[in-house]
Amino acid sequence: MATSNWTTPHPSTFILLGIPGLEEAHVWISIPFCSVYILSVVGNCLLLAVIKSEPSLHEPMYLFLAMLAFADLVISTAAVPKTLCIFWFRDQAIHINACLIQVFLVHAVGTIESGFMLAMAFDRYVAICNPLRHSDILTRSAIAKIGLVVVVRGAMLLCPHPFLLKQLPYCTTNIVSHTYCEFMALAKLACVDTTAMRAYSLLVAFLTAGLDFILIVLSYILIIRAVFRLPSKEARRKSLSTCSSHVCVMIAFYTPAFFSFFSHRFGHIAPHVHILIANIYLLFPPMMNPLIYGVRTPGIRQRLLHILGLKPA
């Protein structure tokens, strides 16, 4: 167990414990963590290289996918290297400013990823429900504006979080029972009432990821209605296949995200279970996204094989 050098209600450092109760297994746990992180970095970098180098992939769906891949790199790199330092070297101290930057990046980029998921759903909705106007609606300019709005939304709504946390007094301890700095984990350490702050965090989560998820579900209801009105079975199959990759990515993203969010605020599960799920949220989707699109998208798969020298383009 780490010892804290806490002496003030406004500490200069926090102590990250890692996964409480599983300290003896940290080295073993680090093996899948490190492996998945390396796969996610390599996979997303290759995905970005493929989309950039192949003109036929400069379409709305793939441009939004490139934005998602970049966000995946940021969110996983914001937390996983420090987690591995805890597991390997017991380097548990983190300066308060680095901790608050980590809070901002994890939550803001997670919100931005949710926005990109919604943008990809909108692209599929227009492509299937209004195909003749797809290129007119989702122009390069429109794609850039959508991306900018998503980034600004995430940054602006989550920007208050680190500033609110920095003003709190931590009168009892500066030990954080987590592998990275997370908003609720820090808010629970404060020795003042944080109800209003937690309510703001809950409202932001609903107005971003919650609302995005509702709109995505509504868009797919409309997509399914449009698909089953198509005259031929082959046309229905082809239309649904263009959405399957996005649905898989969406499930991989929202399932651990919602589980982690609700268990932290409303659930009563073992701390090590919650922390493992919180890390799955940062590790699993960034690894799965390139695999899902690489396997299920012929254009990406063929270009990737060409880059790796395994098959001519």
Rank of each mutant, 00 (worst) to 15 (best):
L240N: 11
I221T: 09
V247W: 09
I214M: 12
L164N: 14
F261Q: 14
L215T: 06
V217L: 12
T195D: 09
F266T: 04
N174G: 08
M197C: 07
S239T: 09
Y281Q: 04
L168H: 10
S260T: 10
F259D: 04
I275Y: 01
L282G: 04
T172Q: 14
S241L: 12
L222S: 09
L283T: 00
R237K: 07
L230H: 03
L164K: 11
E182N: 13
M197P: 03
I214R: 15
G210A: 07
F206S: 08
I280R: 02
F253V: 01
C171G: 13
F183D: 01
N174S: 14
S219G: 02
T195K: 14
P286C: 04
M184R: 10
I224D: 03
R236C: 05
K238P: 00
D212P: 01
Q167F: 08
L240Y: 10
K166S: 14
L164R: 12
V217P: 03
A270K: 08
K166D: 15
S244V: 07
F206D: 10
S232L: 00
S263Q: 09
S219D: 12
L203E: 13
I223V: 11
H178R: 07
L282K: 06
F183N: 07
R229P: 00
L186Y: 04
S241N: 09
E234V: 01
N279I: 00
A187P: 03
F262S: 12
F253I: 00
I221P: 07
C181A: 15
A257G: 03
T172G: 09
H274K: 08
L276M: 11
K233F: 08
M197Y: 11
K188I: 00
Q167S: 15
C191V: 00
F228G: 00
R198K: 10
A257K: 14
F284I: 00
V249A: 14
M197E: 07
V192I: 13
T242S: 13
V249C: 13
I221V: 11
R198N: 10
L222F: 13
P162N: 06
S232H: 02
G267K: 04
F258P: 03
V217S: 08
S239P: 02
C243Q: 07
R198L: 12
A185C: 06
I221M: 12
L202G: 11
I175K: 14
S232A: 01
Q167I: 13
P285V: 02
V273D: 01
T194L: 05
I216H: 02
V192A: 12
P285S: 01
C191S: 15
K188C: 05
C243P: 08
S263I: 12
V227S: 06
S219T: 12
A205R: 15
F253N: 06
Y200Q: 06
I224N: 06
P160K: 09
C191A: 14
K166E: 15
R236G: 02
F261Y: 15
V227L: 03
H272N: 01
E234D: 06
L211D: 05
I223A: 02
T172H: 14
V176N: 02
A257C: 07
A205Y: 15
T208L: 04
V227N: 06
M184F: 10
G267Q: 03
V204M: 08
E182D: 08
H246M: 05
